[in-house]
Design a protein around this nucleic acid. Sequence first.
RNA 1: GGGGAGAUACUCAAGCGGUCAACGAGGACAGACUGUAAAUCUGUUGCCAACGGCUUCGCAGGUUCGAAUCCUGCUCUCCCCA
Length: 433
Amino acid sequence: MRPKIFTFEPMNNFLNELKWRGMLADSMPGTEEWLSKGPTAGYVGFDPTADSLHVGHLVQIMLLVHLQRAGHTPIALIGGATGMVGDPSGKSQERNLLSANDIAHNTAAIRKQMESFLDFSSAKLLNNLDWFGSMGFIDFIRDVGKHIPVTYMMAKESVKKRLETGMSFTEFTYQLLQGYDYYHLYTQHQCRLQMGGTDQWGNMTTGTELIRRKAQGEAYAFTTPLITKADGSKFGKTESGNIWLSPEKTSVYDFYQFWLRSSDSDAAKYIRIFTLKSKEEIEALEAQHALAPHELKLQRALAEDITVRVHGAAGLKMAEKTSDMLFGKATTEELKALSESEILQIFSGVPMFYVAPAEFQSCTELAELLSVKAAVFASKSEARRMLQAGGVSINQSKVGLNDLPTNNSLIQGKYLLVQKGKKNHHLLIVQNS
RNA sequence: GGGGAGAUACUCAAGCGGUCAACGAGGACAGACUGUAAAUCUGUUGCCAACGGCUUCGCAGGUUCGAAUCCUGCUCUCCCCA
């Protein structure tokens, strides 16, 4: 007989896990000890500023995932109330306020996205509007404001930085709101841990301070490092903006490509943070990658793992198919052999432009077709420049300034695959839209 | 309230009567090399019916054959003194 199927793993496995994955920046004294004592609850806050999460949020979500796997209770706190106020941390300007309607809509959408990461049979999803919504201003300043000295609040980096350029009372108060969140979770949900990005440190300590003063309790916190790219630019952004989890905002293909295109050093970092692969597994992948870097094993493993999780197996399959078609050795002939439904399916993640047949026929210059008729380029000059530089392909073959596609060039009589530079593809559809 | 400085393209930043669509740097994009990587090198970077034309240098007027450059007013920003 096996003595026990489940031995209570020391909970500091959780922090060790985060350490080797490079997800731990700073932690309050005592955090590790507390976590090793037994299951506890920990939370991360999310602002409902948009109706989708983006890849930047993924770090915090993974924290909750690891927390859950280590046997603790993860709490995702949606800032339905605080989102109406705006956090000054890490921002140089006063934030725009969102309407209550927008926030409700965003909250619902975010809740849904989190469900593919966390098991909500044990995880909790709370909205701080539930406790702030009914709280009056007088109650707040009596119950919360009374406990935290202004000098303490002023000493925070987020406040100091903004004191010169100016900040409203609203934003100044923000740390008290977030601090109260923690206090509330501490008293109502036995939450003893707050996690977040380094820019949240100040707000997090206001929370533990409030808990200490108001409830004579001990609570803990730790932060994750700011995720950066090797070239110093911001993580999660491309020329075209944020990479969102919502397929309406970022196509599944673009999402997949975002991860696939990461540089070697970034991929090694990301795969630790954004996947649950074991250390051994990752190191083996890295070794394989070093042997045959052109196969992009590391990047592929990374992209596959996250894409499946966010967009499902079908989403991944489509993204891979599209990528094969666009970056593989697909020739003009192979493209032409595709059926119409295959084309629409495979290129569903690629931006499409409609051109009326009459417009297509009457067009006398390629640059005009690609700028005026279909906005692949912002202006005709830009299109010409790019054509001259040899940066444009149609149906997988290079074209120049004087080329002009005819009816014969159209795939299935109406499609034209336009490639701008190395990795920007567009589908031109010749039909009345 | 008094005094001073400034506003130029995506950003920083030259230019201070014609030769300015505007030096330079960064960024961005493209080409070569590669692995849809990194680094490096090269090119491009207001618009168009393109050896030419048009619209841009905070806004509105004015002087002049000619203005980003000079004058007047306005708006905004920053600094110093009360």
